[in-house]
């Protein structure tokens, strides 16, 4: 069903580095879970609406009124790395 290549692709979509020797382990585990999940294929769902929200709630808004933002000190309090009020990350374009 799923191959090591699929696991690699999914890992890269998920931004997870997986060591080569771990690929077969994850592949086997994912495969057994997917096999179990495949039982849903038995269900007749053609005319069933999907439930993404469990209750039929709608139209929840916020008024367009300004509230205070974080102070600069608060905004940087958890920063891993910072430079002159910015969050600093490794270069995006190499």
């Amino acid at each position: 069903m799923i191959t090591n290549e699929t696991v690699k692709y999914i890992a890269s979509l998920s931004r997870l580095h997986i060591e080569e020797d771990r690929l077969p382990v994850f592949r086997a585990e994912l495969e057994s879970i997917l096999q179990y999940i495949d039982q849903l294929a038995k269900l007749e769902v053609a005319n069933v609406p999907p439930t993404s929200h469990v209750f039929q709630m709608e139209n929840v808004f916020r008024d367009d009124v300004v509230a205070p933002s974080l102070t600069p000190a608060e905004a940087m309090s958890f920063a891993i790395d910072q430079h002159s009020g910015h969050y600093k990350v490794p270069k995006v374009i190499e």
């Binding site: 430079h83 009020g85 910015h86 969050y87 600093k88 490794p90 270069k91």
Partner: peptide
Amino acid sequence: AVNATLVDY
């Protein structure tokens, strides 16, 4: 100058 990308949210 700092060889990095800076983020302003």
